[in-house]
């Protein structure tokens, strides 16, 4: 009756910790998040993890599942479990562990700020509504990259982040690229300067792990390539 039981090894503790084994009934359409929640409610109330929406919108439940970063609310056990094998759950890579499966996302969001991943309206408000044609080049470029839910999976998957703690990372650079394509924005020069530093877009090795694991099927690699082009153009123009 091995297939009726789900066996998991879950990381417990902070940076120094150990795996703890759990067992629970394998259920139909059970997600990884369902399993973790069931363990916390029926076996060990001290198990720490993070979630909010449970429907793939909020981006808070990401963790490593058998070494792969995944959004656990939309990951079904049957889709990722190799038949009869134990599942290994760990906190996201590349971020400090708070406890068990919860990581400290501060560095991740600080880098969004550092990459100027926010709208810059300029000194005075525009006199009229900005008209942005939906089929304009900039609008379409922004559309392709806009659906990020800030889950941190790309950041966790990125090898450059793992060896360069200052690297801004795929999510922040992806957001920055959407704003570079926002024709209303008035902070473009400082944004290009922010992403063209040694820790910015030019450090990307195009490994494409971010693109491979993004649950929203975005391609931060492509966004970063766009930033590389724009920053090089700006440098040739003497704008930065």
């Amino acid at each position: 009756m091995q297939t009726d039981t789900l066996e998991l090894d879950i990381w417990r503790g902070g940076r120094d910790g150990a795996f703890q084994a759990f067992e629970l009934p394998l259920r139909e359409s059970q997600t990884i998040l369902d399993a973790v929640t069931e363990i916390q409610r029926t076996q060990d109330a001290s198990l720490a993890y993070r979630f909010a929406c449970r429907v793939g919108m909020c981006g808070s439940c990401a963790m490593m599942v058998d070494g792969i970063p995944r959004w656990t609310c939309r990951t079904r056990v049957v889709d990722v479990q190799r038949k009869g094998k134990r599942l290994k759950l760990e906190p996201l890579r590349n971020l400090p562990v708070v406890k068990d499966l919860a990581v400290d996302m501060a560095a991740f969001f600080d880098k969004w700020r550092d990459a100027k991943g926010y709208f810059e309206p300029g000194e005075s408000p525009p006199a009229d509504f900005a008209v942005v044609p939906p089929d304009s080049r900039e609008r379409r470029a922004a559309d392709v990259a806009i659906e990020c839910i800030n889950c941190g999976i790309c950041y966790s998957a990125c090898d450059v982040v793992s060896w360069d703690k200052d690297y801004l990372g795929p999510a922040a650079l992806n957001r920055s690229w959407t704003l570079v394509n926002d024709v209303r924005d008035r902070g473009q020069t400082s944004r290009l300067e922010a992403v063209a530093t040694d820790s910015g877009c030019h450090s990307c090795h195009s490994h494409m792990s971010c693109t491979a694991f993004c649950p929203k099927q975005l391609s931060p690699t492509q966004s970063i390539a766009g930033l590389k082009r724009e920053t090089m153009r700006a440098a040739l123009r003497g704008a930065i």
Binding site: E193, A196, T197, G200, H202, M232, I240
Partner: peptide, 21 residues
């Protein structure tokens, strides 16, 4: 700090241009 970042960016971007060329 902002000026340092700007000068770092200007340098890094130019180094990249030089490397590509």
């Amino acid at each position: 700090a902002a000026r340092n970042a700007a000068s770092n960016a200007a340098w890094t971007a130019r180094l990249l241009v030089a490397q590509r060329a």
